[in-house]
Design a binder for these strands. Structure first.
Lengths: 103, 103
DNA sequence: TAAAGATATGTCAAATATGATATATTATCA
DNA sequence: TGATAATATATCATATTTGACATATCTTTA
């Protein structure tokens, strides 16, 4: 992961270990972030395919529009749990999730 | 998911939506639990393959032995985030995680 | 263009997950 | 067997994530 991408993420609120300050992100950190990004993108894709607004999806997952927006924009405050629960709520199977992660 | 399995999970501390009380778990709920179970099993597999004790793994992921035990036994108090972070800390790639989920 | 619809961002109290600690249970092996 | 190592379970103060709400910034369309 390059410096530019890192700055972009930091601007979004991501925090990185100080040991990585100059060395870039650890394998672990970037894999984790990449994973979330992929699931976020997948969630938005699924929602729009199903012609739902964020407000409508929020109802389905018993959350709020603002949290859906955060899920889809990769806000660091959202958990993998909520991301995956949301995908499952839209009918995604575990296999689909695996595919999204591998892609 | 059958009643017996559900009882077993409930004994472990899992809570299920009341609407599913007699109907069993929703697709979504069981997919989520299945996902966690698979990752839990994978974590234990990886740790033992690498000949680490729970105490040693705890150090690696900056947690405690008790939490590692909970990760591996599928305690409902553990998040997918911590599970996946732990797998990544043990050198698992996103593709490996995808494989574990699909298996 | 303006209005309406949709999405994004910021904040916060409440809910949930966390590491730590203590202790119980289960394996291993002398 | 009994001692020691490993794992499991319980509890709790602290930290993080949550839905809700307000409001800002796009996007669409009339």
């Amino acid at each position: 992961m390059n410096k530019q991408k890192k700055n972009k993420l930091e601007k979004k609120g991501w925090k990185f270990g100080s040991a990585e300050e100059f060395l870039g992100l650890s394998e672990e950190e970037s894999a984790y972030i990449e994973l979330k990004m992929k699931l976020s993108a997948n969630l938005r894709k699924l929602r729009t395919e199903q012609k739902l607004t964020q407000v409508e999806l929020a109802k389905v997952i018993k959350s709020s529009q603002s949290r859906v927006a955060k899920l889809e924009t990769g806000d660091p405050s959202v958990s993998l749990d909520l991301l995956i629960r949301s995908l499952l709520a839209l009918g995604t199977s575990n296999k689909d999730i695996a595919r999204a992660i591998s892609s």
